[in-house]
Design a protein around this nucleic acid. Sequence first.
DNA 1: GATGAATGAGGCTTCATTCAT
DNA 2: TATGAATGAAGCCTCATTCAT
Lengths: 194, 194, 194, 194
Amino acid sequence: MKQKKPKYKQIIDAAVIVIAENGYHQAQVSKIAKQAGVADGTIYLYFKNKEDILVSLFQEKMGTFIEKIEEQIAGKESAAEKLYMLIQKHFSLLSEDCHLAIVTQLELRQSNKELRLRINEVLKNYLNVVDQIILAGKDSGEFSSTLDLRLARQMIFGTIDETVTTWVMNDQKYDLVSNAEKVQELLIYGFGKR
Amino acid sequence: MKQKKPKYKQIIDAAVIVIAENGYHQAQVSKIAKQAGVADGTIYLYFKNKEDILVSLFQEKMGTFIEKIEEQIAGKESAAEKLYMLIQKHFSLLSEDCHLAIVTQLELRQSNKELRLRINEVLKNYLNVVDQIILAGKDSGEFSSTLDLRLARQMIFGTIDETVTTWVMNDQKYDLVSNAEKVQELLIYGFGKR
Amino acid sequence: MKQKKPKYKQIIDAAVIVIAENGYHQAQVSKIAKQAGVADGTIYLYFKNKEDILVSLFQEKMGTFIEKIEEQIAGKESAAEKLYMLIQKHFSLLSEDCHLAIVTQLELRQSNKELRLRINEVLKNYLNVVDQIILAGKDSGEFSSTLDLRLARQMIFGTIDETVTTWVMNDQKYDLVSNAEKVQELLIYGFGKR
Amino acid sequence: MKQKKPKYKQIIDAAVIVIAENGYHQAQVSKIAKQAGVADGTIYLYFKNKEDILVSLFQEKMGTFIEKIEEQIAGKESAAEKLYMLIQKHFSLLSEDCHLAIVTQLELRQSNKELRLRINEVLKNYLNVVDQIILAGKDSGEFSSTLDLRLARQMIFGTIDETVTTWVMNDQKYDLVSNAEKVQELLIYGFGKR
DNA sequence: GATGAATGAGGCTTCATTCAT
DNA sequence: TATGAATGAAGCCTCATTCAT
C-alpha cells in the first residue's frame, strides 16, 4: 500500500521526529524532507517556509490536543473535576508521545521571538479552555469570587508547564500522569492545611 | 575619564543590552563589543567564547538576584512571609531592569540545549532557596506536612515564571510588583474559598 | 554552451590555478569558487572542506601523473631505461603544466602537518614505482646487488624533487626536460669517471 | 645566576623549541615569549617581526651548522673525503638536536613563499660549500670533468635532504649517521656495479 | 505535482603588533 | 629596557530557498 496520508501531515510528523531526535537547531529542512521521504523542494509545495512548518506543526498538534481535552472535560460537572481532567489529559497525551513532549517543552522554545509570538497565538486556544474552567468554578461557587482570572490562568499553565518540562528534562524517567491529582489539589487548595 | 568598571562587567552589561534590544540571534559578538566600547578581540581576553559570555551573564545576574532575595528573606519569621518576599523581590528586581527581564524570560531560552543545561545549573541555586522556604513552612506547620516538595517547587517557580513571561510578552505595560501578594496567596491557599 | 566537465574536476582545476597564482595562504575558498565559476556553497557539495579540496587535488593530479609514468615505463626492458623514462616524464609533465609545478613544489608544502601526512600517503604510490625500478635493476644485474633500497629511493626522489624545485624557484626559465638524461646518468653512475 | 645569555639567543632557542613541539602554525609569538621567559612586547625589541625571528633562527643555526661543517672539511685532502665529512657532519648535527631537525625539515617549510626565499638566501652558503667540494673533485680528477655543477649540487643536496626528512618523518627512530657512508658512495659511484 | 543541484549571505575567533606605563 | 592589555582584520562553512527539468 502506497502512503495514503497526505504529504502535509507526513511532513509535519517527520518534523516532530527530526526535531525531537536532533534538536531544533539541527533540524534542517533537508533532514525533515529525508525523514518524510520527499525531496527538499517538495516541502515548499505544502509550506510557505521553514517557520510555517513549525507553526503548522504546533497548530496541528495543539488542535488535536485541545480537542481531546475538551472531550474529556465536556461531561464533567464541577470545575474541580474539569481541572483534574485537563491536567490528567495534558499529562497523559504528552506521556504517550515522547517526541512531541520534547518538541513542545524544549526544542520549540529555541525558536525566535517572532515564531514564539505566533505559537502563543495557538496557545491562546488552550488558555481559553483553562479560562472556561476558572470561570465555571467562580460561577458555581467552587472557586473564590475574587479569584483573579489572569493570575489563576498563569498559575495553572505555569505549574503544568513547569511540571512537564522538569519531567522531560529528567528524561521522562518517572510517571508523569500519577502527579495529576496532587497538582490539581495544590492548585485548588494551595499549600495550606486541609 | 577612564572606565573604572572592570571590562568583565562592562562586557556583560553590554551583552544584556544588545540581546534585549536585538534578540538572541541578532546579538553578534561584534555588536556586544561595540556596545561595550572595546574591540572584538578584547572580548576573548575575558571570555572563552560567545557561549561563555551568556553563561557568565546568567551566573553574574542570577548570583546577585539570589543574594538580594536571600537578604530579604533572612529576617522573616514565617514561610508565608518569606514566600511573599521572594515573589515580591523577584518581581521588583525584574521590573527595575527591563532589559534583564527580556533577556532572562525570552531571549536566553532560545539558546541551544547545552547552554540551557548550564543555565539550569545556575537556576538550581534559586530553586534551593525556594526549597528552603517550602521546608520551613512544613516544619513550622504553616504548610501541609504531606506537601510534595518537587510539586510545590514546580508550582512556585512555574507560576512566578509564567507570570513574569506574560508580563514581558505584554511589553511590561502593567505593574508586575502589585501582583506579588495575590500570587503568594494563590500559592498558599489555592483557588478555594477562604 | 553548458559546462560539460563535471564540477568536481572544474573546482580542482580552479584550485590549481588560484593556488599557483596567489599562493597557498591566499587561496581562499571564495577565490577558488569564483575561478571555477560556481557559488561558494557549491564547493561543499563536492568537497568536505577546504583541506579536502587540496588532498583531492593532489590525489587526482598525482594519480594521473603516476598512470602516465607507468605507461611510459611499461614497455621498457632495462631498469636504466625505465629510470630515464620516469625522470623524463616527471620533468615533461611538470614542464607542460607550470601551474601544477608551482603548486606541488612550493605551495602545497606550506600545508599543515596533518595535510602533508595525507599527501605523503598519495606520494607512496609514486615511491612504489621508483622501488619497482630499483628492484628490477637489482634483479637484472644492472644495479649493484648490495644497493640499499631505501637510500636509492631517497636519492632518486630527492634528486628529482630538488631539481624540479630549483627550476620552479628560478621561475622555470630554463629547459627542465633536457636535464633528464644527465640526471639519470648521475643517479646510475655517480660522480665518478666513466 | 641570572640568565647571562643575551635575550636575542634566548628568544631564538625558545622559538626552536616552541616550533618543534607545537608545529609552525601553532607557534604564536606569545608562546615563544613565554618559553623565553620574556613579555610579548620584548620580542619586538630584538626582532622586527615574527618572520624576522624565523629568518634569524635559520641564519643563526645554519651559520653554526656551516662553520662546523667547514671545520670538518678543512683538513681533508680528497673531494670524496670532504663529501663524506659533509654528509657525516650534516647527519650528526641534526641527530644531536632533534628539535632543530624537526624545525628545519618539516616546520619551516610551511612558511610562505617570501620567507622561504629568504631562507634560501641563507641556504646558499651551504650550497657554496657543496660547490667547493664538487669543483675540488673535478680539479683533482676524482670527479668527471663533464660533471654538471648544478645537477651535482642538486643531487647532493636533494639526496641528503630527502634522507633527513624521511628519517624525521619516521620519528627519528633509526640511526641516521650510520647511513652517511652509503649515501656518499651512492653519490660518487651511483647505482652501478663496482 | 515532484525533484535536487545550485545559490550566497553572514559571523565567530585568532594572533601579530602596538604603546602607555 | 621591559611590560602585557588592547587592537581589529580576515575567512571557512551552513542551510533556507529557488527553479529548470
